[in-house]
Design a protein around this nucleic acid. Structure first.
Lengths: 200, 200
DNA sequence: AGTGTTGGTCAACGACTGTTGACAGAGTAG
DNA sequence: CTACTCTGTCAACAGTCGTTGACCAACACT
């Protein structure tokens, strides 16, 4: 049966089998991440990715099946969110804002996912899954009402994604001019209120 | 000299010349807006737009020159922002939040611009121009420090665009489930603080 | 009437896309 | 050495894209 997304490993039970093509595989993934981040899904062509990785386009197909498989393999996001019940309740907003800034600032995977999610259904679902699996549990640690956790997490996501959009994708000058402390200082009270304030 | 974006009006000084093809022209623009809003720039093909408008793809080229010209003609955004110096200072956040919600809710041009701006340079510049020409002057009416007007307007844009992204483009369930009063109640204090609060 | 402009259809072009299969060297096990 | 798998290159496929120009019908003007 065809299984294009998985690697054709000879030993199916091998947890880590170093292959001679690992260098090529990672080169493809790196080029793919960069292209997806700067061009979005449609304009990031397999040919351009292959050229960046200095290999033939057919290698991409062999190792990752098709373009969707390549995207799935290239974009794996771990937000590395800290446990919010370990920080003082009045500082969760600041902690989240600082963490998100640091994650976005040197992680082109997040930009790639944002750009792709806007025009590609699979990308949008991936973003939704990340929010549900990674952001929601952390929000649940500090939200007062369990019924509102999803709403409050979505509001936080909206604020963070909105800043990422204007800063990294649209590159509005006032948004790109902000330094770390400014971004954190402006966003912290917003996230704090979305997470812990009583429902308006 | 080629001037593909302008209409080939016989009388160059005529302010309003009703042409026999006006119905076709508006049909093209409506179909283009809808396609750009749902598919983004790359996947909204001229052929699909022409099929929606029930005409031949070559008509699009004749009337709007090329795809970029079509986009420029189809997406003309007027935020219709109210004068903020006319509302009580403590309510500018709520007024803005309510206005943006009403604008986004039944205006697919805004969704089209957001989707296109993420993958198309011209779209991004268009968004930036709208913020600069329409949002900035209104923000200047209520911002305490003239030097910070651009920053505060950008923060408001980030929050509004972030909610639009999660609600209309990515369609996160918690974001789409919010009703008007909830959106306004959650966003109003944020916009109020971004516009009028002292610099953090 | 005839003549020129405008609205619209049709077929095709070159370029580019994702994708496929045939084929050639490098590495390894027997 | 032989046999075989793995890695990589090359050429081509079918389809779609934006775009163009030839051609015809409907109208407007004189």
């Amino acid at each position: 049966m065809p299984d294009p997304a998985s690697t054709p490993a000879p030993a199916p039970a091998a947890p880590a089998s170093p292959r001679r093509s690992d260098a090529t595989r990672t080169a493809i993934l790196e080029a793919a991440r960069e292209r997806f981040a700067t061009d979005g899904y449609e304009r990031a062509t397999i040919r351009s990715i292959a050229k960046d990785a200095r290999i033939d386009p057919s290698m991409v197909m062999r190792y990752y099946g098709n373009k969707e498989g390549l995207f799935a393999a290239a974009v794996a996001v771990d937000l590395k969110l800290p446990a919010l019940d370990a920080v003082p309740r009045a500082e969760v907003g600041r902690a989240l804002a600082a963490h998100f800034f640091d994650m976005w600032e040197d992680n082109e995977v997040l930009t790639a996912l944002l750009r792709v999610g806007v025009t590609n259904q699979a990308g949008a679902e991936r973003m939704q899954a990340i929010c549900r699996n990674q952001l929601l549990p952390v929000a649940a640690q500090v939200c007062p009402d369990p019924e509102q956790v999803a709403t409050r997490a979505a509001l936080c996501a909206a604020q963070v994604l909105g800043l990422a959009l204007t800063r990294y994708v649209l590159q509005f000058p006032p948004a790109t001019a902000l330094v770390r402390e400014e971004v954190v200082a402006w966003l912290a009270p917003t996230l704090q209120r979305y997470l812990t304030a009583p429902s308006p």
